[in-house]
Amino acid sequence: MGRYILRRLLVAIPTLIVISFIIYAVLALSPIDPLSAFGADPRVPPEVRENIRRSLGLDQPWPIRYVKWFTALIQGDLGYSFMSHSPVIGLIVQRLPNTLAVVGVAYVIGVLIALPVGMISAVKRYSLVDQVATTFAFIGFSTPTFFTGLLLIIIFSVNLHWLPFIYNSNLKIEDLGSFLQQVKQSIMPITVLGLFDAAVLTRYVRSEMLEHLPLDYVRTARSKGLRERAVILSHVLRNSLIPVVTLIALGVPAVFAGAIVTEQIFRVPGIGEMLVRAIFDGDIPVVAAVVFLFSVLVVSFNLVADVLYAVLDPRIKYT
């Protein structure tokens, strides 16, 4: 087992190196100019621009910049933002709580809805519950989150004035009042994203369960005279949970991708919002760091999923 993980880790390294190169090359070769933030104004003197360019190290050819960036990266240094001249890692740490508070919670809620609904749906196939769940799932993953988000804002913020549409990242949860405030400001994004996640996951769970329902061991269990309930819980559930757990692990990085749009709609100052702004500002160190960290996340969760698979399924042996 340990050797398997080690081997997988070793394979991941060249992959991450290639990824880091691709990300950096795309950014470096693009026509974006970090200096554009300094002006539409032709009177910003060229010398000043050149000075700034030099001070940001942009006068060097990009392969050299890449090597420097990568060398710093493997020492754990993500570099400095062009815009705020502060360490990128600090910016990410500042924003992570906002992303987790909204997008993370939404994913957890999505999983909590999807697991029971997906299972019931599969077991009681073509029942009313299944029909309703399937309908909602299809509607759920066919609706763009930015559309639902806008509708919620129109209804609850603009017309009813019930919920705020400015996310206050400085809110500290100390008592019931501030907790309620946090609930009020995050309920819309959590709903939108949570329902979307739930819709997708419900389908996964349902189809995984279905895969296992007609299998031989289920028949055996049934023929042993076990009650349907016991069959489902101890046999089907246990076996189909393995791929479901894997799916949930694999879905974690996608959660952050979903954050981009949701954070944009609800103005949550999280990592997705920072990434979009950094792209527009040409803040290369921030963009490169965020995208690279996401890739690391994907690679590690792939690994986690495989390891979980191995742990949960005794039939699989890794060496």
């Binding site: 554009s36 300094f38 002006g39 539409a40 104004d41 009177r43 910003v44 003197p45 000043v48 527009f280």
Partner: peptide, 11 residues
């Protein structure tokens, strides 16, 4: 004189 201008929105 120098003037800073926000390129992104032309303001």
């Amino acid at each position: 004189m120098l003037t800073l201008t926000m390129a992104a929105c032309g303001q």
